[in-house]
């Protein structure tokens, strides 16, 4: 009973909070928190799909179009790191073969390059990976090694879907293992 009231009370608080936002309309902006990245993981059949999204500053230390060679090479390095799938994820027991990697590097579009970045404009890195895993039932854990590669990432909000289960968890450098079961 009390429990129920708590839920009700909580939802009213949340309604109140959300109402403040609902007046603000298009265009929509995705959440952008420095130090935080997002992983979306879907396991369907033997296909494992991983989507990574992070504010640019977490990966290269600045958030504007590169202005010198050093910054340009940082951007390229980040791209290469994100492309090396075996460095990013470790799959327990199951063997997962990388099938497809797509990395969206910001600031590389010529058109975007010419215009000066707006003050305070937020830019994200997107990367998506597709793996084939065999035997898929052995895939119980995924170790996310992004924390050591990009120390500016403090936590990764992870949303995963596997065999009809949807769940969310927050990974941190002290706890980088995602348990899927």
């Amino acid at each position: 009973m009390e429990y129920k009231h708590l839920i009700l009370g909580l939802s009213f608080v949340l309604i109140g909070v959300s109402e403040a936002y609902s007046t603000e309309m298009h265009p929509s902006h995705e959440v952008h928190v420095h130090g935080q990245a997002v992983l979306n993981i879907v396991l369907d059949g033997s296909t494992l799909f991983i989507e990574f999204e992070s504010p640019v500053i977490n990966l290269i230390g600045f958030e504007h179009a590169p202005v010198n060679e050093e910054q340009k090479s940082k951007l390229q390095n980040a791209k290469q790191t994100l492309a090396a799938t075996e460095q990013l994820f470790y799959f327990s027991t199951a063997t997962c073969r990388s099938e497809n990697v797509e990395i969206e590097v910001p600031y590389t579009n010529q058109h975007e390059d010419r215009k000066l970045p707006h003050r305070g404009e937020h830019v994200d890195f997107h990367a998506s990976y597709t793996f084939k895993c065999e035997p898929v039932k052995d895939l119980q854990e995924i170790t996310i090694k992004l924390f050591s590669l990009f120390p500016a990432i403090r936590q990764i909000k992870t949303y995963w879907i596997s065999h009809g289960i949807q769940a969310a968890t927050v990974l941190e450098s002290s706890n980088p293992i995602l348990k899927i079961n």
Partner: peptide, 29 residues
């Protein structure tokens, strides 16, 4: 199922109307 997150993003950024798409299991968690 692969498309869940991209469809969710598409709906959350739907330009004609402010909509919200949630994954029920994740919202419960």
């Amino acid at each position: 199922k692969m498309a869940i997150f991209s469809v969710q993003r598409h709906i959350n950024q739907y330009p004609k109307e402010p909509l919200l798409a949630i994954l029920p299991g994740i919202t419960l968690t």
